[in-house]
């Protein structure tokens, strides 16, 4: 199998370039395993993040044949053919996550993405009135967003406010509706009328998110409190 990787080292290269590797692989191997094999034997200068290899740490997001994926969740035997861009005769084309600054090869700068969490104050401020129970229906509404792994794949979705990201928004939505938080619905004030937090946002997020985060149940409450369109 021929694999094409967009490489770029801002300290050295003027612009990104394609590098090709020939690798033997079996169909149940993940793209991350392919990269590890390349790093172990062919080219240790190839840079990519790795940690859990089971889809829970969010370190290995990339564009795999034009699709946003976690590389550890993408099996070599199941990837769709290269559609939009034919890079010579490569079977697999890997590029860094769009909407991020490239630090080296597939490693991107996560800091702006995490800064958006700081700007949106996505942390619970304990509510002294909380008595230790959360009704199950209320809990179920919050649960849909609990699986977010901060991988950054959602950063391609436009939310209409450059200071926010989908990940920061879903965390704000969740905490604002959590009885354990003292600030509660006042948190929603950071969502201005120009913000695209609506049904379309929820659907786009579900389609892209590798953990299928679903903010649908939070949206209804949001609409009631802010007058934002559903």
């Amino acid at each position: 199998m021929r694999i094409a990787i967009e490489r770029f080292d801002p300290g050295v290269d003027r612009e990104p370039y394609w590098e090709f590797y020939e690798v033997a692989l079996h169909s149940r191997q993940t793209i991350l395993e392919v990269l590890l094999a390349i790093g172990d034997t062919l080219d240790p200068t190839l840079a990519f993040r790795r940690s859990c290899r089971s889809g829970i740490c969010g370190a290995c997001g990339a564009l795999v044949n034009g699709r946003l994926q976690l590389m550890c969740q993408t099996l070599a035997g199941e990837i769709t053919p290269v559609q939009r861009e034919l890079i010579q005769d490569a079977d697999v084309v890997l590029r860094p996550l769009p909407n991020f600054r490239v630090l080296k090869d597939l490693v991107v700068d996560m800091e702006p993405f995490l800064d958006a969490l700081r700007r949106a104050s996505v942390w619970t401020v304990p509510n002294p009135a909380y008595q230790g129970t959360i009704p199950r229906e209320q809990f179920q509404r919050l649960w849909g967003t609990a699986a977010c792994i901060l991988c950054g794949l959602c950063a391609t979705i436009s939310v209409g406010d450059s200071a926010l990201t989908p990940a920061s928004i879903i965390k704000v939505l969740r905490i604002a509706h959590d009885p354990r938080d003292a600030r509660g619905l006042a948190r929603l004030n950071i969502l201005s009328r120009g913000t695209h937090v609506n049904r379309q946002f929820v659907e786009e997020l579900k389609a892209i998110c590798p953990k299928r985060v679903d903010a649908g149940s939070l949206l209804e409450v949001l609409a009631d409190h802010t007058g934002l369109e559903r």
């Binding site: 619970t124 129970t133 199950r136 649960w143 609990a146």
Partner: peptide
């Protein structure tokens, strides 16, 4: 729990 951990809940919310 007070800091917002999403512990799974019993029928009565504990």
């Amino acid at each position: 729990d007070r800091l917002g951990v999403m512990w799974s809940r019993t029928e009565d919310g504990r």
